[in-house]
């Protein structure tokens, strides 16, 4: 892919839900955004701003009511239901609540993401230890999630998201359940991943994280894009001007 072509193109996307009594709820309202290869983007905004909805649209958990999303040249509208699992194997996702399989060990949780896509046992044996080393969990390989701290669980989730070496890593409030020390460990890990060329799209409420990152910040409010700054802290977010 050339440098000029963005990896993610979000064009006039709206997502509408029907509330009680049929009332319209605009979760995303005519949003347009372009994200280039290698970018680290923080997606900020109050609860209900539309951050999680945008994440769900990117992993095709939801479909836009209007507009289109193009990832690596592929218009997500053209994805058929049976293609979605294959698409998801190319996009890493991390959630606030980790979403680990509780009865599997750290190794098994990571290997599972490989096993679902027909990886051979040799591939599993080769890739899992490497990714465990990357996230610093080699010594916890045989533990189950219940035996890990929040930070360690999130690192397992990141390792699982990275196992397919995705071009895009979506992190939806990954530090929401963590203490400050674990929060920084996770952010540093995300930065390390970003250095390898993977786009990191981080949805967060955490002002301190955004301030420290000093990377691109996209702010949403009521489903609308209110600010998009190339490098900023939380307090420096300015309303988007017309024509930006």
């Amino acid at each position: 892919m050339s440098q000029a072509t963005p990896l993610i193109v979000i064009e006039n996307v709206s997502k509408e839900y029907r509330g009680k009594g049929g009332a319209k709820i605009m979760a995303i309202d005519n949003l347009s955004l372009r994200i280039d290869k290698g970018e680290f983007v923080s997606l900020v905004g109050p609860s209900g701003a539309g951050k999680s909805t945008l994440m769900r649209l990117l992993i095709v958990e939801e479909r836009p009511t209007k507009g289109r999303i193009i990832i690596a040249g592929r218009d997500l509208r053209t994805l058929r239901s049976r293609d979605i699992p294959f698409y998801r194997r190319k996009v890493g996702v991390v959630f606030q609540d980790f979403k680990l399989l509780p009865n599997k060990t750290v190794t098994e949780n990571i290997a599972f993401a490989l096993e679902v896509c027909d990886a051979t046992p040799a591939e599993v044996r080769d890739k899992v230890p490497k990714i465990l080393e990357l996230v610093g969990l080699t010594n916890r390989a045989a533990n189950e999630p219940s035996e890990l701290s929040g930070g360690e669980m999130q690192r397992v989730a990141i390792a699982r998201a990275l196992i397919h070496t995705p071009k895009l890593l979506i992190a939806d409030e990954p530090t929401g359940n963590l203490d400050p020390s674990n929060t920084w460990e996770i952010i540093e890990l995300l930065l390390k991943i970003n250095q390898t060329g993977t786009i990191v799209l981080l949805a967060t409420h955490n002002q301190a994280v955004v301030d420290r990152l000093q990377r691109r910040v996209v702010a949403l409010q009521n489903g609308k894009l209110v600010s998009d700054q190339k490098t900023a802290g939380y307090t420096e977010i300015k309303p988007k001007e017309k024509g930006d």
Binding site: P85, K99, V116
Partner: peptide, 16 residues
């Protein structure tokens, strides 16, 4: 249901 959701999110197809 969460286990099924996780399987879907890591790219497991419906047969799997």
């Amino acid at each position: 249901r969460e286990e099924i959701e996780i399987m879907r999110l890591v790219g497991a197809n419906n047969i799997f």
